[in-house]
Amino acid sequence: MDFTPEPYDDNVSSSWLICNTCGTQFPTADRSALKTCPICDDPRQYVPPSGQSFTTLADIRATGHRNEFMSYQHDERVVFIRTEPRFAIGQRAILIRTPDGNILWDCITLVDDETIDRIKQLGGLKAIVISHPHFYSTHIQWARAFRCPVYLSAEDLCWTTTPSAHRKPLTEIESEIVPGVKAVKLGGHFPGSLVLLFDGRLFTADTLMTTPAGLGKWDVDALGEKREKPPGMNSFSFLWSIPNYIPLSADEIHRMWGILKAYEFKSTHGLMVGMDIEDDKVKARVLESMKIQTRAMGNVTHALLDETL
């Protein structure tokens, strides 16, 4: 370990303010010192009709929130963790169990004794990797609780709120976290937006946004007869702002494909529970979706349309 672990002091951090909309924690308990959340003031996020408001870990716990653990039916090495009732964005964290240590992909706000004990029973954490600033949440408290580093892109450090030696900026396009687990910097949604690759599984967060059409069952009709998927149905969208529906440009999507096409994967796993696609042809579906979006934005001769697997 190339840093001195910092103490996990829940008595202090449980009183620090947390944005109710995005779940980001700020290192202060003084409500007069924090009037707005800079992450939610950015065009890639939003403030709800109820207005800006803050809570604390102590209050989240007191209102009955707890973390649920769900083993993935197709791979017991993958465990989904989500907070119920839903809090903030509602994303899941994903525990990836490897022979060289467990990796937590993305982060959720609620960390408590029950969660810490459950993860320790599963082998603890070797490292945390976070896709982008919307999921930074309470990542320093997680890192301190498990005495592990937390990796995020160097380009997005300006969105962090709590100084810490646990934080390790990633500067390369590809970074091996432990043997067999690679963080790949695609950008797009944020300059440093990451995906994570593990044994043919691509964990995408919302760097690639899984669509309802992508999760749909198209192989049979209502009578159980075989059918073909209708043309033009995408599986992913590529957005600069997810909640405000602002798309990425065709050039940016093409740049992302220039990185992603070097990797092989048989499944994708998005930011929410249920956003999982098991399909040996899912890489082709990513490229198809990129082309669908490119055409829909009025591009008929863009170089991305000539890309093949």
Rank of each mutant, 00 (worst) to 15 (best):
221 D>N: 12
234 N>S: 15
144 R>C: 01
18 I>S: 00
86 R>H: 10
247 P>A: 01
77 R>P: 01
19 C>N: 03
115 T>C: 10
118 R>Q: 13
76 E>R: 10
304 L>G: 11
28 T>L: 05
214 G>D: 11
17 L>D: 07
266 K>N: 14
56 T>M: 09
179 P>D: 04
141 Q>F: 02
228 E>C: 04
134 H>Y: 07
306 D>V: 00
64 G>S: 05
119 I>G: 08
283 K>G: 14
17 L>S: 08
132 H>F: 01
296 A>N: 09
64 G>A: 02
162 T>W: 01
100 D>C: 13
267 S>K: 06
42 D>P: 08
85 P>M: 14
237 S>W: 05
50 S>L: 10
58 A>S: 10
84 E>M: 07
100 D>W: 11
149 P>E: 00
299 N>I: 00
216 G>A: 13
215 L>F: 09
187 G>E: 12
178 V>E: 14
197 L>P: 05
5 P>I: 03
35 K>T: 13
83 T>R: 13
224 G>P: 00
277 I>K: 06
130 I>C: 08
173 I>Q: 13
162 T>A: 13
53 S>H: 05
288 E>V: 00
111 V>S: 08
208 L>E: 09
183 A>N: 05
184 V>I: 15
106 D>I: 03
28 T>W: 04
117 D>H: 15
167 R>W: 04
121 Q>Y: 00
57 L>E: 04
56 T>S: 14
234 N>C: 13
207 T>N: 06
265 F>M: 12
161 T>L: 15
178 V>P: 11
138 T>K: 00
299 N>L: 05
156 D>E: 08
24 T>S: 12
191 P>S: 15
39 I>Q: 14
290 M>F: 09
141 Q>K: 11
262 A>W: 02
82 R>W: 07
228 E>D: 15
173 I>T: 15
181 V>T: 06
147 R>T: 07
301 T>W: 07
261 K>H: 12
52 Q>H: 03
108 I>V: 13
210 T>Q: 14
303 A>G: 00
15 S>T: 12
11 N>A: 09
37 C>T: 02
297 M>W: 10
206 D>A: 04
90 G>Y: 12
182 K>T: 14
52 Q>A: 11
154 A>N: 13
9 D>R: 11
81 I>E: 09
54 F>E: 06
75 D>W: 08
218 W>L: 06
69 F>R: 07
20 N>L: 10
113 D>L: 14
307 E>Y: 03
145 A>G: 08
227 R>P: 04
266 K>G: 07
32 S>D: 15
124 G>T: 00
97 R>V: 03
102 N>G: 08
120 K>R: 15
130 I>P: 01
284 A>H: 09
162 T>V: 10
107 C>N: 15
111 V>M: 14
157 L>E: 14
253 I>V: 14
41 D>L: 12
302 H>G: 03
29 A>D: 15
141 Q>Y: 03
288 E>D: 13
122 L>Q: 12
175 S>K: 12
194 L>K: 07
49 P>W: 07
144 R>F: 04
262 A>T: 03
67 N>T: 15
225 E>G: 12
188 G>T: 04
293 Q>H: 03
151 Y>A: 10
5 P>K: 09
35 K>A: 08
77 R>Y: 01
30 D>F: 06
59 D>T: 11
57 L>Q: 09
165 A>S: 14
174 E>P: 00
30 D>S: 08
303 A>K: 11
214 G>R: 04
40 C>W: 08
207 T>E: 08
15 S>F: 05
175 S>A: 09
61 R>P: 00
2 D>W: 09
113 D>K: 15
90 G>P: 10
